[in-house]
Design a protein around this nucleic acid. Structure first.
Length: 429
RNA sequence: GUGGCUGUAGCUCAGGUGGUUAGAGCGUCUGGUUGUGGCCCAGAAGGCCGUGGGUUCGAGUCCCAUCAGCCACCCCA
């Protein structure tokens, strides 16, 4: 493909048959989440930049170097959303949530981050996500994770692992980051260049560094669960208790930190080994998010799952969405007069819910038209030649069996509806 | 932003050490006597060999640059 016709790097056109994978994932979201009382919310893809800077945190990687930010004509700074939570929270807060009121929403759509594309990582990628706002309880966190597992099951993703950790409260993290800072500064000599920098700026990131020379120090580092206050620990333990009571498998991952500042208490990730380097299919947690101009933070729990990654996992598992519904009939027309009759017939059949392709050329040979019928996967070829038009009949050929009968034109909708139904039921046996 | 791999037909790919009009399979289209698809047979269309420069009598092939794609790091979905 020549350059001007190619989609931008990190973006792609989604054609059949892949688009059917997307439909299945989207349909499953719209089916499963409402079972838990969630309703769909659609927010804009573009927001004021400050929403993300405040909401996600100005020290995060996402905000610092991955956002698509630009000025509009009025000189305002706008940004293509890099994640879903901030926009959803803006919308929810804008509604005016009274205290004690709950709100459960899910969303579906494109997100944008200016990264170098790789397997399972795109600049425009797509997430389905949920947010449950207004109830702080371990059960809410657990239910959120259970719903995610339900969704994964619905989209036939097996063998996914749930990783869980706690980040405690803001106060817990203040205490803990002091501990980590001292701990890593004492061991900084053997560690990689990035971690030396992080020891000053962002100690949390050290915890999921993959450099071999850092592993020893990281492995021996104190665990977050041991550093948080008793109340935070109890909260986390209760999340685990509920998960256990509901029969969910999970692994506590003391190194799990996540990259967005708004998380606190429960954080989780769902990973899958079928993915390669980008092995997270979904992630989320409990959050307190400060919106611009608001005194009180919005609290909730939620997750986002990456559709591209779910599709990759499904490929690894050899799960495929049903590809294409076959065409019920192809109308073969010989000559201009037949073509007019054929088009009229096609429209009538489609109004009966039948999938019909009609020849549009008129001057193509019958052989060529039959080839098209075959290529389209048509169950029936409906043949209209001079003779049929004169007699007001249609020659109906069943493509699988090559059986052929002639029917009055007027009876065709009824006849074909029945014929397709019996052919379909025979096929299912 | 850093590194590795790869760019030949719509797709998947062949094209030893440079040497005439660049090939195959699949796909597409047409035909194989009147109005019948799938298999088979015949034929056709379709390529500035990613782009630019260099070496050479001669470059798809060697060298340099550049662009694009893929993958990895970083980070995350």
């Amino acid at each position: 493909m020549s350059a001007p016709l190619k989609p931008l790097p990190g973006t792609s056109d989604i054609w059949p048959p892949e688009v059917y994978e997307w439909l299945e994932l989207e349909d499953a979201a719209r089916r499963v989440f409402p079972l838990y009382g969630y309703e769909e919310l659609r927010t804009p893809v573009i927001e004021r930049t400050e929403l993300f800077v405040h909401g996600i945190g100005d020290q995060t990687e996402v905000v610092q170097k991955e956002m698509y930010t630009f000025e509009d004509r009025g000189g305002r700074s706008l940004t293509l959303r890099p994640e879903g939570t901030a926009g959803v929270m803006r919308a929810v807060a804008g509604l005016g949530l009274s205290s004690g009121e709950e709100r459960r929403v899910f969303y579906l759509g494109p997100m944008f981050r200016g990264e170098r594309p790789a397997a399972g990582r795109r600049r425009q990628f797509h997430q389905v996500g949920v947010e449950a706002v207004g109830r702080k309880s371990p059960a809410a966190d657990a239910e959120c994770i259970l719903m995610l597992l339900h969704y994964l099951e619905a989209v036939r993703v097996r063998d996914a692992r749930v990783l869980l950790n706690t980040r405690g409260t803001a106060e817990d993290r203040r205490v803990a980051s002091e501990v980590y800072r001292k701990y890593f500064q004492a061991r900084i000599d053997g560690m990689c260049e990035d971690c030396r920098r992080r020891a000053g700026t962002n100690v949390w990131r050290i915890l999921d560094c993959k450099e071999p020379q850092c592993q020893e120090a990281i492995g021996a580092a104190p665990e977050m669960l041991g550093l948080v206050a008793g109340e935070s620990r109890a909260f986390f333990r209760e999340v685990l208790n509920v998960l256990e009571a509901c029969g969910a498998n999970y692994t506590v991952a003391p190194r799990l930190v996540r990259g967005l500042d708004y998380y606190e208490h429960t954080v989780f990730e769902v990973v899958h080994d079928g993915l390669g380097a980008q092995n997270a299919v979904a992630g989320g947690g409990r959050y307190r998010l400060f919106l611009p101009g608001q005194k009180a933070p919005v609290e909730g729990v939620g997750f986002a799952a990456g559709l591209e990654r779910l599709i990759l996992v499904r490929q690894a598992l050899e799960v495929r969405a049903p590809v294409r519904e076959d065409i019920d009939a192809y109308v073969v027309c010989l000559g201009a007069a037949a073509l007019r009759v054929g088009l009229a017939l096609s429209v009538k059949l489609r109004r009966c819910g039948l999938r019909v392709l009609c020849e549009l050329g008129g001057d193509r040979s019958m052989k060529a038209q039959m080839r098209s019928a075959n290529k389209a996967g048509a169950r029936f070829a409906l043949i209209l030649g001079e003779r049929e038009v004169a007699d007001q009949v249609v020659t109906c050929k069943a493509m699988r069996t090559a059986e052929q009968t002639e029917r009055p034109l007027a009876e065709l909708p009824e006849w074909l509806t029945a014929a397709v139904a019996t052919a379909a039921s025979r096929n299912n046996k």
